[in-house]
Design a binder for these strands. Structure first.
Lengths: 224, 224
DNA sequence: TGATAGCCTTTAAATTATCTTTAGAATCTC
DNA sequence: GAGATTCTAAAGATAATTTAAAGGCTATCA
């Protein structure tokens, strides 16, 4: 999972980011309207935590743009005052949930989880593809209802594949989504081969082989 | 796609080139003003990554010249300081985007992709010609919505044909665009025959035959 | 109009690049 | 510190690209 925290109060931003980076693979931040807008244009996120009262521009504006571009990421609004108007307008514009300052990080986290569940996984805690089922709460995987044990990276990789089924995913895209762009690894993607291989072995052993190699460009997850 | 990296810090230049050469067909470099200027005059590029602070001459100067020559390539400026002036001036002069040092290679890559999308493909991820459709994100090709598997060179060749439809493309032009000028291959273009033949076979088999031979001058892609 | 030289098509083999797989070292987690 | 996970390195397998070569086609000029 890849999150973006758009919040201009540096301290709050940092504490949110620190807390959530335990949950997400990649947790990036934006400190003003421009940065947030730019990052949203450049990258795909699963979740955006958006402060409505960004100093340099309205979060609502940003939200509007986001939804016009038809991005599929979930949006959770932070509003400073408890004025209902902002919240309602935000929800009208397509935000998935809101939270009012001050709040507990744990609450934000569980709201995010709820949004992910509702949005990406169709209101369900589990997401399925053919005979594969992922329990997103427990982060566990099943093939034909028999559990298979996956490591964290394997689970993340499988989830990324399933949520992007049919699309060719280059090693660069996979690396960006699972490792972020702040890593030393990024001049050498070879380690991805190993994870692909490990995941493939486990899936194949359980009778599910959907990871196809697109020679020279990446991998794709597809039913034959 | 053909990129030029105009950057005089050797190390940075190399790491950019290494990263981007996974994405582009041809990724050439220029280490000073003269070299960059020369290459831009001689060859066509889809993207130029241009350091504004080239030691031996101003990148802005180069940009100005480029735009006067009305080249259609996308330009992304690298600026060392975060001084807004340089950036704004750059954008004024026709740069398509800018990025400030230090930056992540993945970000540069995403910006390039965005510029290409906006510019060359009219803001769209897929590009069509009659019953052929290319999904530029997935690097996959369809004829009448049925997928056809192309190798990397075949895909690149087809994309080059479609984006230059109707125009006679000499083998030299094709070679320059798909292989660059730094190769040993270039005193003998015969290998292009093989790629043309392979691509033709696949397209014909799928019911699309648009590659016409212009005897003695090249090939062109055209509806009958 | 038919001989010829240059250009193109096609196939197969050689070379090169990319991917798979394994084993073990480094790192993280409890 | 023990066990699991993640990453590195390298050898082997597979697919793509290039080379080479034989034969067909096209324009040109006797």
């Amino acid at each position: 999972m890849k999150y973006l925290i758009a919040e201009d109060e540096k301290e709050l931003q940092q504490s949110i980011a620190t807390y959530l980076s335990r949950e997400a693979n990649v947790c990036e931040t934006a400190s003003d309207y421009r940065e947030a807008s730019e990052k949203l244009e450049l990258y795909d996120y699963d979740i955006v935590v958006l402060d409505i009262n960004l100093i340099t521009g309205s979060g609502l504006e940003l939200l509007k743009k986001l939804k016009e571009q038809n991005k599929k990421c979930g949006v959770i609004i932070i509003s400073a005052n408890s004025s209902l108007d902002d919240k309602l307008e935000g929800l009208d514009l397509g935000a998935d949930d809101y939270i009012t300052k001050p709040f507990h990080l744990a609450e934000l986290n569980s709201r995010i989880k709820a949004v992910l569940r509702r949005g990406q996984f169709g209101g369900n805690d589990s997401i399925t593809f053919e005979e594969i089922r992922l329990d997103t709460l427990a982060r566990s995987a099943y093939v034909n209802d028999k559990p298979i044990t996956l490591t964290r990276k394997e689970y993340d990789l499988l989830l990324f594949f399933i949520t992007n089924q049919g699309r060719v995913l280059s090693k660069a895209i996979i690396a960006e989504h699972l490792w972020g762009d702040d890593s030393d690894l990024l001049d050498n993607f070879d380690f991805i081969y190993v994870h692909i291989n490990n995941l493939r072995k486990k899936l194949t052993k359980a009778g599910a082989k959907y990871i196809q190699t697109a020679y020279g460009s990446g991998y794709k997850f597809i039913a034959d």
